[in-house]
Every structure is written in structure tokens, then in C-alpha cells.
Design a protein around this nucleic acid. Structure first.
Length: 648
DNA sequence: GAGCACTGC
């Protein structure tokens, strides 16, 4: 079995592209069926798209990465007058980097200055103008936040939800809200753009209302053909198999020609092992064969390390990029001709009964496998080696479960309530979160005093809904007035929102880094340790070289600075004083407990802890400063519980 | 003595 993508101009007879050119002549006549599943019209030109946007309230656009929908569609709309009369065209992206880079490209294409006709809006950065900006690229989270201020999104004429197939929590929430908005403001046009054929799910969703007028348009991708191969027999160890496959691709280079290799594995541990296996094989590489360069890629690497992956291979060498799922959608590496796909992915799952989050390795979906294969066909025809049998492929789920079904919903539900959506069971979810998750979230909001016993927002809840932090942190910020420690609690709030603050490399350098990290250690625990690290960072001039010599991530620390200054504005708005506790750790501890009292645990003689809620046996994570010490009081509060591989 | 998919406000 093989999957094929076609590049324009190279259409094979009878291919989809061929049919598309026949349709060109019937522009304006070819009206796509409203509910016609299974008959996706292949339209290629702007007139067809504009016709659909004019005629239908909701247009679902299917197009592979690279078909230009993200950059071209908003420009079509602009030229057709959709941004006249002071209206704006919004286009959401699930990631910041996509919002900024696309905005900059479109701005160039139009020959305008970024931030004027074309702008972007992401957290901490608003490069747009209320008066001038006609096309606004933004993260989905930012548009969701805007609904809290302007519930009808009245400044927009068209909203395009891009990459909807990724089904981020904010994408799902936005689709639900936009469906409600369209009932009150039918003139608002909605474009849902998706890379998979699962788009019929969106069509069904928007066709449910009586006034439902949705249609699907399919666009052609700009892709080279990718041949897909499967294993004859399943492998017991896909990491080794991945190393062998990459090795063999390189050995066959005389037939295969140049081109880099991209290997998909699930996590850092597997990546390190694969790099290890391949580097052990390198001494046996025949002299005539191409030399290979091994490049691991995962989010835990520093920015510099990640940049290595993008540098073109030196003459006479071949890059082998061994990556997590980060290379599936977030990062695009040019020059990849061979993809090796282990067939698995690590996803975060949330158990609403135990409130435990954990990482599970699960088989990829068909959509995900297709996306991975497509990474081989960006610059030339490619080959994808799937490290599983074709019978396994046939039973893969069509898509990965939407994030909203496997994550904590406390904050989103608070925000929905702030939007006046109180009956969560009646809300039209694209995919509903499990009832248990909703109940737990409501319970948590009630316990934190954000909602009353009839489920309505309290005055505090009303304010916290605006705050871009989790509920416990917000609770803490509000209590800081009573405990007179706003200055410190603000820093702790910012630091807990950032991940991977300490950088501990492998091997000997790691031991040194560990010693550096201990310099910040506070006896009181991780929150105080984070506070120490932040204060030291600002005291020593916020420099990246200082971070490097103190085992800190400059990227993470800079982010904490931004978050702190953003939260500071909220504190000022809510009249919360910024007082210092002047070294009184007791007051600060009490304030922390006021936000996280539900996450209490008691030390036991065997070194483990028992949670106050549920009396669960908990272990301290090795990255905590309490991993090596006993809390003086015998009590701790924890920020989060994560299920790991540790044997219980 | 032991561990880190990826985003986003």
C-alpha cells in the first residue's frame, strides 16, 4: 500500500488534480452540496472559495500543509472586501511561532509593514493596530480570551480557525463559542481549516442547527509523492529497528541518492538509545558510504542544540534527525527525503477520578502517520518506512483523541462560566469532555470559592476568570493581600507557570549542574527555591551567560519575567498590594497553602507521603529539592501529581 | 536514589 501526494503540474492521469482542472471551467456553477458527505468538491481557485464564503456561513476547508490556505485565503478575503468598513479578518494558529511567521510572510507578500495591514497577536506580543490591521494572525488562546471581553467578536467579519485537525483545547472551545456567536450574528463568517478528511466531523457539527449552512471545500496540496513501506513482521524493539533502518537507508545511498533521514520516536530516552546504537555502528561504516551526522531533537534541548537540526548537512554527509513528535507539526526540517516512523506517540492523559496526569505511549492515528509520511515529500519525492505491519495500520484510529477529552478542565470551565455558559451539559461541545472531568472541575472551583452552590461565579471567580493562570495560583495571588507577600507570591506564580527551568545535561556536566542548582535550594521546598533562582537571575543582570553557568534555562527565565510583569498588571487592576514579606517565610508559606490546601500531603516514616485527599501513596519527584530531604513540619503541598514509570 | 510528548493564555 502506498500513499501519494501530487505536486501541481505533475498530475498523473485521473488524479485528483486532473479533476480539479476540469472543475475550473465550471466556477460559479459548481455549488458544493451542503450535507453531501463523500462528494468533496475539489476546488482550486479563489473564486470558488470566495463564492462559498459569500454563500455559506461556515466553510470547512481541507488542504494539506503547503497548499497555501493559511497565507492565501485571508488575502483573497481582503481583496474581496471582507475587511472593508473597519472589519478585521482573524486567522488563528495553535502555536505562537506559526502566528508570527505567517503574519510576517503575508505582510511581505502584500508589501506592507508588519503590524499595519497585517499583524499578529500572541501572549506578550501584540504587533497589530486596532485602526489599520485588516488581517490578524493570532493564537487560538488569544482569540478565546478576546471572547471574554467582546462576546460577539464584533470587530471580525471572518474568523478562520486554522489547523483545526490538531484539536487543541482552545480550538475546540472556540468552535463551540463561534457556533453560538453565529446564532446571534449570522453575518460572521467562519472558516475551519483542517488537514485531514476527518473534516466531515466539523461539517456535521455545524450542520446541526436549523440555520446551519455549512459546506466543505477541498484544496490541493503542494507535495511530492511519498512511497510508504511496512514491515513484513512486527518488531519487538522499534528503537533498534529504527537505527537499523536508518543505517540501511544510508548504505543504499548509491541507489537512494542524497537526502536526509527523519526518525520518529516517542521520547528522550528512546532517542538517546537510538543515537547510541547508531554511533556504535559508525566505525563499521564502509569507506565508500556517505558519512552520517546524528542529531537528536526534542523540546528539552536548548535553543542552540535545536538549531543544529536546521543547518544543512555538510557536503558528503547525511543528516539523521532523531525526533519526538515535535517534528510532526511544530517544526519543519527542509531536505528530508526519508522518514522512519515507529508508529507510536506519547500523549498526556488525565484520569478525572484520581486527578492523576500521566504520559502514555499509544499507537499513532492514521492522520498522524500521514502527516509524518508527508515530512518526506516537502522538497522531492520521498520514502516513509513504517516500523509496523500493514495490518496494524488498518486498525489505527483515524485521529488522535481531542485534547479536551484528556485534560483537566478547571480553568476552561471557569472561563466558559464567565462567558455566561453555565449549563455545561447543554453546551454544544465538538467533543464533550468526560462527565467526571466536568464534575471534578466544578468541585474544584467550588472548593476554591470561584463558584457558589448554585454553580454561579462568585465575584472572585469573575475576576480570576480573566487571569491567565490556573485557579490555585490565582487564589494564592488574591490571598497575598492578607499575608502581605504580594511581591514574592507574584514571582512564585510566574515561576510555577514555566517548565524546565533547570537544565541538567547528561553525564559529568550534569553532576556539575546539579551542584549549581543546589545553590538555590531552600529548605522550605521548591516554591522557595524557584523564588531564590528568580531573585538571583534579576540580581545578576538577567544574562544568558549567567544562566548557563548556573544550570538555568535563559529561555525559561525570560519567560518567567514576561509572565510576572503580565500578572503584575492583573494584581494592580484587582487592587492587590505588592508588599514584600521581608523574609518572613511563615507568611509566604501560609499564602501558598491558601491556594493549594487541597494538594496537601503528610510525610511518613518510609519516606513516602500520603495525600490528604484520597490518602494516596505519593513519592517525591527526583527533580524536587525535597527528593533528598524531609520537610521539617512533616507536611507539604504539591503543585501537581504525575504518574511515572517508578515502581510502586 | 531516580526522570523529563507537545502546546497555549
Amino acid at each position: 500500500m502506498s500513499l501519494t501526494f501530487w505536486k501541481p503540474g505533475t498530475a498523473a492521469p485521473g488524479s485528483t488534480l486532473d479533476r480539479a482542472s476540469q472543475l475550473e471551467e465550471s466556477i460559479g456553477v459548481q455549488i458544493p452540496p451542503t450535507h453531501g458527505r463523500g462528494q468533496l468538491p475539489i476546488l482550486k481557485y479563489r473564486d470558488n472559495l470566495l463564492y462559498c464564503v459569500e454563500k455559506f456561513g461556515v466553510v470547512i476547508v481541507i488542504g494539506q500543509t503547503g497548499c497555501g490556505k493559511t497565507t492565501q485565503l485571508p488575502q483573497f478575503l481582503l481583496q474581496a472586501g471582507w475587511a472593508d468598513d473597519g472589519h478585521t479578518i482573524a486567522c488563528t494558529q495553535p502555536r505562537r511561532i506559526a502566528a508570527t511567521s505567517v503574519a510576517s510572510r503575508v505582510s511581505d507578500e502584500l508589501g506592507t509593514k508588519l503590524g499595519e495591514e497585517v499583524g499578529y497577536s500572541i501572549r506578550f506580543e501584540d504587533v497589530s493596530s486596532k485602526e489599520k490591521t485588516r488581517i490578524l494572525y493570532m493564537t487560538d488562546g488569544m482569540l478565546f480570551r478576546e471572547t471574554l471581553v467582546d462576546p460577539l467578536l464584533s470587530r471580525y467579519s471572518v474568523v478562520m480557525i486554522d489547523e483545526a485537525h490538531e484539536r487543541s483545547v482552545y480550538t475546540d472551545l472556540l468552535l463551540g463559542i463561534l457556533r453560538k456567536i453565529r446564532k446571534k450574528r449570522p453575518s460572521l463568517r467562519l472558516i475551519v481549516s483542517s488537514a485531514t478528511l476527518d473534516a466531515t466531523k466539523f461539517l456535521d457539527y455545524f450542520s446541526q442547527d436549523s440555520e446551519g449552512d455549512a459546506t466543505i471545500v477541498s484544496l490541493e496540496g503542494r507535495m511530492y509523492p511519498v512511497e510508504v513501506t511496512y514491515l513484513q513482521e512486527p518488531t519487538p524493539d522499534y528503537v533498534r529497528k529504527a537505527a537499523e533502518t536508518a543505517w540501511n537507508i544510508n548504505l543504499q545511498s548509491l541507489q537512494q541518492g542524497p537526502g536526509d533521514i527523519l526518525v520518529f520516536l516517542t521520547g528522550r530516552e528512546e532517542i538517546d538509545r537510538c543515537v547510541q546504537e547508531l554511533s556504535e555502528m559508525i566505525p563499521s561504516l564502509p569507506a565508500r558510504a556517505t558519512r552520517i551526522v546524528l542529531l537528536p531533537l526534542h523540546a528539552g534541548l536548548s535553543t542552540e542544540e535545536q538549531l543544529h537540526v536546521f543547518q544543512p548537512a555538510e557536503r558528503g554527509t547525511r543528516k539523521v534527525v532523531i525526533s519526538t513528535n515535535i517534528a510532526e507539526a511544530s517544526v519543519t526540517i527542509e531536505g528530508i527525503k526519508f522518514v522512519v516512523d515507529c508508529g507510536c506517540v506519547k500523549i498526556r492523559v488525565f484520569n478525572p477520578t484520581t486527578l492523576l496526569a500521566s504520559l502514555a505511549t499509544v499507537p499513532t492515528s492514521v492522520a498522524s502517520a500521514t502527516q509524518r509520511a508527508g515530512r518526506a515529500g516537502r522538497t522531492s519525492p520521498g520514502i516513509c518506512y513504517r516500523l509496523y505491519t500493514s495490518s496494524v495500520f488498518k486498525v489505527l484510529p483515524a485521529t488522535t483523541s481531542p485534547e479536551i477529552t484528556r485534560t483537566d478542565m478547571t480553568t476552561p470551565i471557569l472561563q466558559l462560566k464567565s462567558l455566561g455558559i453555565d449549563d455545561l451539559m447543554k453546551f454544544d461541545w465538538v467533543s464533550a469532555p468526560p462527565a467526571e472531568t466536568v464534575l471534578r472541575a466544578l468541585e474544584g472551583l467550588y472548593a476554591a470559592g470561584m463558584i457558589d452552590d448554585s454553580g454561579r461565579l462568585t465575584p472572585v471567580g469573575e475576576q480570576v476568570a480573566e487571569c491567565p493562570v490556573e485557579v490555585g495560583i490565582a487564589r494564592m495571588l488574591f490571598s497575598s493581600k492578607e499575608f502581605k507577600c504580594g511581591e514574592e507570591i507574584l514571582t512564585i506564580a510566574a515561576m510555577t507557570a514555566v517548565q524546565d527551568i533547570f537544565v541538567i545535561p547528561e553525564g559529568a556536566a550534569g553532576a556539575l549542574a546539579e551542584l549549581e542548582r543546589r545553590k538555590f535550594t531552600a529548605e522550605e521546598g521548591d516554591h522557595f527555591t524557584l523564588l531564590n533562582a528568580y531573585n538571583a537571575f534579576t540580581r545578576y543582570g538577567r544574562s544568558s551567560s549567567w544562566c548557563k553557568s548556573h544550570a538555568l534555562s535563559f529561555r525559561a527565565m525570560s519567560r518567567a519575567v514576561s509572565i510576572r510583569s503580565q500578572l503584575k498588571k492583573y494584581m494592580q487592576r484587582f487592587n492587590l498590594p505588592l508588599e514584600s514579606c521581608e523574609g518572613d517565610s511563615k507568611r509566604l508559606t501560609k499564602c501558598l497553602v491558601s491556594g493549594y490546601w487541597r494538594n496537601g500531603a503528610r510525610w511518613t516514616a518510609d519516606g513516602t507521603y500520603r495525600s490528604v485527599r484520597g490518602n494516596m501513596i505519593l513519592h517525591v519527584h527526583p527533580t524536587s529539592v525535597l527528593f533528598t530531604r524531609k520537610p521539617r513540619s512533616g507536611w507539604v503541598i504539591f503543585h501537581e501529581v504525575e504518574e511515572t514509570k517508578k515502581a510502586h
